[in-house]
Design a protein around this nucleic acid. Structure first.
Lengths: 330, 330
DNA sequence: TTGTAGGCGTTATCAG
DNA sequence: CTGATAACGCCTACAA
């Protein structure tokens, strides 16, 4: 089908090895010969078959990316920066949307193995499960694996985590400084990441000397879910004057509910989201949000993977600090 | 490194070909032998090297996806559905964020060639340029290529397009029926897709018998850009009572500007976005939007690629109808 | 039913 | 400086 190194060799009247030398510009080849070959390569639009090349060099130069659903805003952003960073280093990414189930994810881990990826990045704390740990140690134990916002204790696994726990704790502190002391935390999925945020919420309250039971409020994982949950929350707990949502999208639904109820934001109820995403800017009033530094997190993940690939010892686990971006809802 | 077919063969006391037969469950192998081999495969966590396999079967089972920037909401959605559809068929996607420049994109097309992808999907009308056409005919002429929302006249290129032109024209009609007749179209990038929307706007006006010059308003491609442009638009053209934005994100910025100016939506100014994205639902009031059926478009793209791969003749170019989803801004 | 031999497109290691 | 030759891991005749 495609033109091979042999076709070029024949045309140039040399051997395949000489052509190979020209392609990979190794020395030990006559400049004239090289020039002649290079012209032919261009003439025939020759491109080396990376697959064949990888077979002998034992390097696929492919990285596997697993993500639950790339449409989730913060995962999209991660995937973007990771791809950019890896492409810069000449790697290419094969991406799979795995959904939430461990069995399906295990299948994809096997697929990555078959494709002989040189490394993998799992985006999201939900990959932090026993089943995934087992799958990695069984099928993907000979290449570095980085988890974005998660970690598994395995020799070849690295973790880059957002310090959302302290971030949320800081949010509580901010509210106290503004006189908002009846706080609620609205959570959708109980992912490891969200659990940590919740912990931060509880710790924040304790730090402020609040002895009451923290008000944790469950909601469906959607704009509408947050809308309804917020309405119910305010009906049952009219004293609430500060709500933090596990992610910006939920906060947007919450803001809408409060607005519809005629509740003044931020005077009567102050609102904070998490992710510092575009959602927060579309929201009216504009959302104050905990910036978990997704870009840094993602780029670091890619870099750590690259370091691990070059056998440079890197930290197994790093933490990236979060910071509050204040807008109009606080 | 990884265990090979030979390792298994040696352990099982058979030849490599017998192992191969067991793996690809071909007949002409003793059930007992097969069973024994299968056990060993499991025991050693053997997985065939797809790369090596691809070399001989001449099938990489990889599809290349090129997208300007996957963070752009409608492209994210496309990439998601395309990946899901292709994965279902056992293909894996290698994705690159190319940015807008033709030279860079040409480089990526070459990379796809080197990787010997079996097909490619280019997401976005901006791939509809002469330079890309040339690159495809030069480097990627032996595999099917599908353009999402675009088309190039090349034997191996297929196009799946949203009928946004008629969609926008329908928006104009809708407005007329509601008595809004001083309309404006706000555009950021002059992509082929946006140009078509603009054409639809102009045609819609003509259909209504409007002889005035259509009011086309330029803006920067961001939430803030749309915000500022809208303010200026309303200052210079206070008579405007209907604005359609090239994409939802811009419309969200516009809605915000109108709200800040104390303009009643939709009574005083009616607003329509395009894409029917989550942005429209976060926006307050909720955005009426032209649904360009991105999901259908994307799934069709993947299906057409699959059909083309199986040499089933498919239409070179299909059109998917858009429809208006009315919410609170009209 | 099984094994042998050859080849997929490259690179690497030797000789020459 | 250049050319055989042997891998890389797998599949597919063809032969046994």
């Amino acid at each position: 089908m495609s033109v091979t190194i042999y076709d070029i060799a024949k045309e140039a009247g040399v051997s395949a090895s000489t052509v190979s030398r020209a392609i990979n510009n190794k020395d030990g080849i006559h400049p004239e010969t090289k020039k002649r070959i290079l012209q032919l390569l261009k003439k025939y639009n020759y491109f080396p078959n990376e697959t064949a090349r990888g077979l002998v060099t034992k390097a696929s130069r492919m990285i596997g990316i697993l993500v639950s659903d790339i449409r989730t805003m913060h995962h999209t952003v991660s995937a973007y920066f990771i791809e950019r960073e890896l492409a810069k280093q000449g790697y290419c990414c094969i991406i799979f949307n795995t959904g939430p189930e461990d069995e399906v994810r295990t299948d994809y881990i096997q697929i990555l193995k078959r494709r002989r990826v040189e490394g993998a990045i799992l985006i999201g704390s939900t990959f932090q499960t026993e089943a995934i740990k087992e799958a990695i140690s069984k099928y993907l134990n000979d290449v570095p694996v980085v988890i974005v916002n998660g970690y598994l204790d395995l020799p070849n696994v690295y973790g880059v985590l957002a310090d959302e726990m302290n971030g949320v704790s800081d949010c509580v502190k901010l509210w106290y400084s503004k006189g908002h002391k009846n706080l609620a935390f609205v959570i959708d999925l109980h992912t490891p990441s969200n659990e940590l945020k919740m912990l931060g919420f509880e710790q924040g309250l304790r730090n402020m000397g609040d002895k009451r039971a923290p008000l944790i409020w469950e909601c469906e994982s959607s704009l509408q879910g947050a809308y309804e949950a917020t309405k119910k929350l305010m009906e049952e707990h009219p004293e609430v004057d500060g709500i933090i949502y596990a992610v910006d999208l939920l906060a947007a639904g919450g803001v809408r509910a409060l607005t519809d109820m005629g509740i003044a934001i931020p005077e009567q109820v102050s609102v904070i989201g998490i992710d510092n995403s575009i959602y927060g800017e579309i929201c009216n009033p504009r959302l104050t949000s905990l910036d978990n530094k997704l870009m840094d997190l993602s780029i670091s993940s890619a870099r750590i993977l690259m370091d691990a690939l070059q056998k440079q010892l890197t930290t197994k686990k790093i933490l990236v600090f979060s910071s509050i971006v204040e807008r109009e809802t606080t």
